[in-house]
Design a protein around this nucleic acid. Structure first.
Lengths: 203, 203, 203, 203
DNA sequence: CATGAATGAGCCTTCATTCAT
DNA sequence: CATGAATGAAGGCTCATTCAT
């Protein structure tokens, strides 16, 4: 049961299956992909998958969790100066944007697609990914306002606007916007400028 | 063949079917919905649907086209003053946001979900909805820059940022963000302020 | 919906399927029989069965109901004289025994087998077949006791003994007892004698 | 090979497995029970079962054989007086009826169910359990008739009637007849009276 | 001999689509 | 053009059985 070597084997096999599932889902989409597709890609028998995952949906959820974990690993703003508004904003924007590797692109597409439609997955996404980020960010904004570093804006709407902006850019990139894809690297700076100062010409 | 009365009947029947399909898809999702579900909701036989639409996917595409048309109808900025930057931005943001009625919410959810996964639908969305909007908006921004009304920003990235912001807010609302849902009405003004002037405190 | 011709067609198709199911179940047993077996035997596609029956188990239940109905049709003792104890007993015994045609033999085997194991079917059998018979019979016995026609026995146990005897004979015949099969016709008389007078030699 | 200690170990392990199988089969039924269920209940691995039994069906057969053996152990009428007709009948009836403990109830249910459907098991039951009993009983009846202790009835039908009565009562008890369950203890006497003297009132 | 992961045949069921009426 | 019964391909999932360790 708790044999560490067994656990490693189990984890390895799970990852093998999830890697295959991620590839297949990304290629064909979740609904079009079959368990046999995943099994073939993983080089195992279809039935074996059910020794490690409850059902097809569980594969999607596990993939989702892996994405969440890999994302949380990135979301560390520890080294930032507390009053460095611009630095924080840039990091806040750049971190998720840069995590959207070309490897993850198609997988993210599938997960987002299912999030829209699957209530349970949607709740997970809201609670485990969006939620914590919003709370952390909102505290920073409140601090800055108290310090007079930024205008006294509605922090709740502000953090949602920021995260929506990021999410929307990702989705639009996924949709195939060429300019976004070629200029993706320059987004953090451009966005930070916009958020800090807006577009209005100085008068 | 091209008997106008026949055409009207055909159009009416198509709309009857699409109305039903929109309701059913919105309720159960595209994949979970069956042709019989749609037929029942429309009060007709399942076979009849195939007299008007090629297959199930065609229903989704037709629904998509209706959404596109209704959206294009809204996107008229004719009455705006050419130099009213703030007015344009506000309209540009408010129009799609306000079109996300509660009626359309779930349907939009389904369509977005499929757009992510269906390449053909995705191309349509990019070309027919996002594309024209971006082109129009970009021209305005270029004009304003020429007039010195706004900073000399990268207009391509700018319009994509704006439309992504809108799209992202819609998606995040769909995901179930409560604050966004209750404060939805105040978004246009808040966003316009942000876009125009940013968050930085005046020094 | 309530079109009588439609109803007839539906009933005919249901019977066609049930006939096939009865044959196949009788031959291979319920669990070993597949839906495709039934469909092939009925000369239709597998999917068609699901237009008429919920699932495989529903087929068994419907078969059970047909047997119940055909059995109830036989269970009429109206023409008997109220004080004809021997006549009643003989009819009570003979009716079910004689209904066990060779056609029904294997089917009855399957149904009994499932009744043992399927709680819902068991409840149906107890309530709809055994129960009513016991109640009717018990009233007759009580009348006869009141009239002094038979000994003051425990009527509850008596009617259960009788119906168990019948059931047991059927089961034992199904098990393949050759003597029972060849002498089946003489059972009613033999049993009636036994029940009336026992085996003890007159002293 | 024929090491006696090895044999004991093998027998013990077989019994361990059969005990578990009996419990699991009785609880879930033969078809619903899985080999893993049995293995879990026995506290061993699924594969181990196949070191002792050919396949799943073999478990059922072995259980059946154990029931047969335990039953034969009971069926000893040695101590009865050869002319004690009533005593013999009572023992003949009481022995199997009383062997239907609540422990065995559900197991018997499963075995009977499979006997109905499995031809091989059915043959075993007929030859090894019913058959010998009938032969023994028939000889007694013939003796009694020769002695004038009972009427000159058809002994073949008679013994089958008796054993069917017992079998039928068991089945009906299994089906859930409440009165039979509460009055089960009084059956031997009641049945013996019935068989000996019938129900007809003395004239 | 014990283990239990791997296997893969096979089943029930769904449902988009067709077509005779 | 409407109907809806019939179709049958396809998929998720189970589980008895095997066999390398």
């Amino acid at each position: 049961m708790t044999d560490p070597i067994q656990q490693q084997l189990i984890t390895a096999r799970k990852n093998q299956i999830l890697d295959a599932a991620a590839r297949v889902f990304a290629t064909k989409g979740f609904h079009a992909a079959t368990i046999k597709d995943v099994a073939s890609d993983a080089g195992i028998a279809a039935g074996t998958i059910y020794n490690y995952f409850e059902n097809k949906t569980a594969l999607l959820f596990a993939i989702f969790e892996r994405m969440r974990d890999s994302r949380q690993a990135l979301t560390t703003f520890a080294e930032l100066q507390p009053d460095d508004v611009r630095g924080f904003i840039r990091a806040f924007v750049a971190t998720p944007l840069m995590s959207l590797h070309s490897d993850y692109l198609d997988l993210f597409r599938v997960v987002i697609s299912e999030i829209m439609v699957n209530e349970e997955l949607r709740a997970l996404y809201a609670q485990q990914i969006i939620g914590p980020t919003l709370i952390i960010a909102e505290k920073w904004f409140q601090t800055w306002i108290a310090q007079g570093l930024i205008k006294p804006i509605d922090t709740g709407l502000m953090v949602r606007t920021l995260s929506s902006l990021i999410l929307g850019l990702m989705v639009q990139k996924l949709i195939g916007d060429e300019l976004l894809q070629t200029r993706w690297e320059s987004l953090p700076d451009t966005l930070t400028d916009l958020i800090m100062d807006g577009i209005r010409g100085e008068t």
